[in-house]
């Protein structure tokens, strides 16, 4: 971990997509720090650069300039194999569309990050089962994703993001495919189970109903972070108003 307790430090990040005919600046001189034990939400209109920023932070997309340090490590200078290993050990993902492997059951899906990290399959599935119990799906270990509801699938995805005990969890629109109540349950689960003092959560969301779960909210527009609001400074209503 960084000496100053930072999980993520982004400085002057620029990312430009070259679509052939034109160049689109997705991130333009973005600066953002995320502390350990913090739940940071990235909000803003579609196309404002939230997903690009979360991809850079998670180390699955290289920025064109600027530096992004994850626990003090600058991923862009890391050899690709080291970067893969670093990502496999330290980052957990929760996706909008769940992205569970449809032919694997819940326990097998959750065990994937452990298998990627070299754990034996049987042991990985045992550990996965324990985490699934933690998220309330102990009875659905052998269910395929198609046999689970949207909320249950997202809980499997959260278990998958947690199982290898990563220091950063990135979530892309984790509640947008869910109804309000289920979304609220999923966010509560994320906050209760996933958020620890040695772990940071970055959540991209459009869903204003879940803003109150955030420690800080960074509002983005047109590739810039235009505002960062600290929840300690306001109520849910004032947060919405501030944004």
């Amino acid at each position: 971990m960084n000496a100053d307790g930072l999980a993520v430090r982004c400085q002057n990040i620029v990312k430009i997509y070259d679509t052939g005919d034109q160049k689109v600046t997705a991130l333009d001189q973005v600066n953002l720090d995320i502390a350990m034990g913090e739940l940071m939400m990235l909000v803003g209109p579609s196309g404002c650069g939230k997903t690009t920023l979360i991809s850079v932070i998670a180390g699955i997309l290289d920025q064109d300039s600027g530096s992004c340090e994850l626990f003090g490590e600058n991923l862009i200078t890391m050899p690709s194999n080291d970067k893969l290993n670093f990502r496999a050990k330290n980052v957990g993902f929760v996706f909008q569309a769940f992205n569970l492997l449809p032919s694997l059951n819940a326990a097998e899906n959750v065990s994937v990050p452990l298998v990627i990290n070299g754990m034996k399959r049987a042991e990985a599935e045992r550990k996965a089962s324990r985490v699934l119990e933690q998220v309330g799906l102990g009875e659905r270990l052998t269910s395929l994703p198609a046999q689970l509801s949207g909320g249950q699938q997202q809980r499997v995805a959260i278990a998958r993001a947690l199982v290898h005990n990563p220091k950063l969890i990135v979530c892309d629109e984790p509640t947008s495919a869910l109804d309000h109540e289920t979304g609220h349950t999923v966010m509560a689960l994320l906050k209760d189970v996933a958020l620890q003092k040695d772990r940071a959560l970055v959540i991209v969301t459009h869903d204003a109903r879940v803003f109150n779960f955030a420690d800080r909210i960074a509002e983005m527009d047109d590739g810039h972070i235009i505002k960062v609001v600290d929840s300690a400074n306001g109520t849910q209503t004032s947060l919405k108003e501030a944004l």
Partner: peptide, 16 residues
């Protein structure tokens, strides 16, 4: 492809 992308994002190498 998306499933391979998920595995890649989670740290699976091209070789695997």
């Amino acid at each position: 492809l998306r499933q391979f992308g998920v595995l890649k994002a989670m740290g699976t190498s091209n070789w695997v």
